[in-house]
């Protein structure tokens, strides 16, 4: 299904995370999301953007405005060429962190969206795709 609109943003610094949140907010509003839906999408974007920066060593996010059977949605694809995640099941467990975080970024953002998929190759990088529908 082709996207109505798409855009790619870099994630290289802390300040880029702020920009990703702002973009996720305005695209959520454009998709007609309620305040709760916007907040969930923005928060998930914030988590994944920070992982991309902190663990992936930086990367990109692609925003896509979607429409399917009259329903509008928003898809975000986070990509990096970092070290990858050796054990996805473990990484998705509540409270698991190899850093100093709460370990709720991946598992939590999965609960905040309708669609969540993650692919990771050791030494090649990580790609996380999330989507929310109205």
């Amino acid at each position: 299904m082709p996207a109505l609109k798409d855009e790619m943003l870099p994630i290289r610094a802390d300040s880029d995370i702020v920009l990703v949140r702002q973009a996720a907010r305005s695209w959520s509003i454009d998709a007609g999301f309620s305040l709760v839906e916007q907040t969930k999408m923005v928060t998930a974007a914030s988590e994944l953007a920070r992982n991309t920066l902190v663990y992936g060593g930086g990367g990109t996010v692609r925003l896509e405005a979607l429409e399917e059977n009259g329903r509008r949605g928003l898809r975000l694809t986070f990509e990096d060429r970092g070290p990858g995640i050796p054990d996805l099941e473990l990484a998705l467990r509540d409270g698991f962190s190899t850093g100093t975080g709460l370990g709720l970024g991946l598992s939590g953002s999965r609960r905040l969206v309708n669609e969540f998929s993650i692919e990771s190759q050791r030494g090649e990088g990580t790609r996380v795709v999330i989507a929310r529908w109205r």
């Binding site: 907040t39 969930k40 928060t43 709720l104 598992s107 609960r111 905040l112």
Partner: peptide
């Protein structure tokens, strides 16, 4: 606010 409370709960914090 309500939307923040809902989000925090889903995050599992």
């Amino acid at each position: 606010r309500p939307q923040i409370a809902a989000t925090i709960v889903h995050l599992g914090v």
